[in-house]
């Protein structure tokens, strides 16, 4: 019997939860705020769905009832992607070690 592709996706999902579990426990507590902002940014990879939705209009019609939701989602996800990664970058740049010469 053939295995439903859904099962493969489910396997990826379950294994990723475990990967996430171990990876996140190894994050140092002082970086928990950047962790939240970066997870925010990467969860906006939902933009791939938004792009497919936005480009779903039939030939010539850019704004159909379904593609408008796609465009709106693109704006929201883009705010998050740029905002999330840049603010993380800004925060991480501030974490400095003690200067040796002191």
């Amino acid at each position: 019997m053939e295995i439903d592709p859904f099962i493969f996706r489910l396997s990826i999902f379950i294994l990723s939860i475990f990967v996430g579990y171990y990876v996140v426990w190894s994050v140092t507590p002082s970086l928990h705020t950047p962790l939240m902002s970066v997870t925010n940014a990467i969860s906006s990879v939902i933009i791939v769905g938004a792009i497919i939705a936005a480009l779903s209009g039939n030939d010539g019609v850019v704004f159909s009832s379904s593609s408008i939701y796609g465009f709106l989602a693109i704006v929201l996800a883009a705010v998050n992607i740029f905002g999330g990664f840049l603010v993380t970058q800004r925060m991480l740049a501030m974490y400095k070690k003690k200067k040796k010469d002191k």
Partner: peptide
């Protein structure tokens, strides 16, 4: 988890992996 749910709908691995990562990260925090 919301991203993962959409990932299953779109059959998109990047979304499924990310959703699971973010979901477990938030749960641990």
């Amino acid at each position: 988890w919301a991203a993962a749910g959409i990932g299953f709908t779109l059959e998109n691995t990047a979304l499924i992996i990310t959703g699971a990562l973010v979901g477990s990260s938030g749960a641990i925090l």
